[in-house]
Write a protein that binds this DNA or RNA. Sequence first.
DNA 1: AACATTGTTCCGTGGAATGGAACACATGCT
DNA 2: AGCATGTGTTCCATTCCACGGAACAATGTT
Lengths: 257, 257
Amino acid sequence: MAAGRVQDSERGEAAGLQSVTAAARLLECLRYHDELGVCDLARRLGVAKSTAHRLATTLVGCGFLAQDEVSRRYSLGPSLAELGQVAADRMPLRRAALPVLEQLRQRTDCTAHLALLDGLDVVYIERLVASSCNPLFSHVPRRFPLHVTSSGTATAAFSPDLAERRLSAGLVHFTAGTVRDEEVFRRRLELTRQRGYACTVEGAAKGVASVAVPMLDGGGNPVAALSVAGPVKRVLADTDSLGRLVGSAVQWLRRTR
Amino acid sequence: MAAGRVQDSERGEAAGLQSVTAAARLLECLRYHDELGVCDLARRLGVAKSTAHRLATTLVGCGFLAQDEVSRRYSLGPSLAELGQVAADRMPLRRAALPVLEQLRQRTDCTAHLALLDGLDVVYIERLVASSCNPLFSHVPRRFPLHVTSSGTATAAFSPDLAERRLSAGLVHFTAGTVRDEEVFRRRLELTRQRGYACTVEGAAKGVASVAVPMLDGGGNPVAALSVAGPVKRVLADTDSLGRLVGSAVQWLRRTR
DNA sequence: AACATTGTTCCGTGGAATGGAACACATGCT
DNA sequence: AGCATGTGTTCCATTCCACGGAACAATGTT
């Protein structure tokens, strides 16, 4: 690493140790895939098969990946689950939000979520599953582009810059319920601003609707959102009242931080 | 990487890419520490300060670590939280256990846990916090040596080999409630076998007692444990009934897998 | 049989990662 | 104030570790 270290990468972070960065990128390939093979990983990372294989087997050794004995494909491993849970346990915003999320869960009998804004996506960092919830959320990803879910819509509605960036990047297809049309999305943003909450139907998961309210920081920028999600009929029967409950929860959370 | 690749490491796994392995070990240093500085990390890893610094800053760039602007110390980062949650979401045993954990939580009004056996430790992979629980578990680690908690005791009680290995490795001090004496631990193991459940007081956290039942695989080896934890008085008032409830939950889980 | 695809292993090579040293900064002690 | 100690960051010479290419084994399709 001689003078003139490369400071530019796709997200502007220093490249640092290249093989560590490659390993992290490999793990990220599995965000939306239960498992992937070596050749697929190599293609996604833009490296040789043997390089991808070495990265993957090293991560298996560390417990960050696991390999299926029959299919030979790789999936996220137990040590990642453990450390990830530890990391989430320690997030101050998540800690602060837990009591009010639990309250929301009980009052609404819906699954209560905390989502953090990250780039042009939201990441669901906490999900307290409703007691009565039979279609579990286990198969639902944790990260969505802003336009896909109520939490993302809610955050974009209160940041014109963010909304424009998301639109410029394109309203990528994600689920059957993904809004793809710019005008439709703009109307949703406006409606969200008027009502103070966003509502989406089958954004994240089939058969599920949700209501979300953004949490803004001191400067008025959205950083997170609270939401409740449940069967479409249950949520649509009650959106205003759910919106008020979630809104109160957000107010409470802002005051206790 | 010429011929004669070293196949032996402390846990018998191939070393693979050394800097990737070092990065993983660095993340593991933070299991029991909210944050650590570069010099501390370097000492723990047995590397130069500059190496630890480079590892840490690379991981910050990837989102796996975060650095406090004032103290300059490093803590686990948001991308690790995200991917870790995804990894946990996808664990088949955790998925299968969720309904019965929720049931336990409701019936007992205690915090319900799923712990997996890993080496001489148990790792708490799922924790459904009791509704009435005010001293939250946010500060409680996810990994404990077997002798410290009820889940660990329960698993050790039904594997003589495992118990002996834990004893040989030493009953390390963990919390004020940690059993340190071999005879005491052996008596606890015997009592657990007689009753079918383990009970510990202030093993994992001050003011909390818990009751755990191991889950054995087809060959009779413990792989996991279910447990409920709550205020000492509540748990001790009802250990037998809690033991039976948790035992039924374990039976149910075994039959559905 | 020929071809395409996958996952794994091997090897020569050069560049990426290392440790040491210097530096900047902060704290505590005499 | 000067010194000792500790921290976190940056730079550079050195070398060995990580890379890509190629070969191989296995599987599936035409």
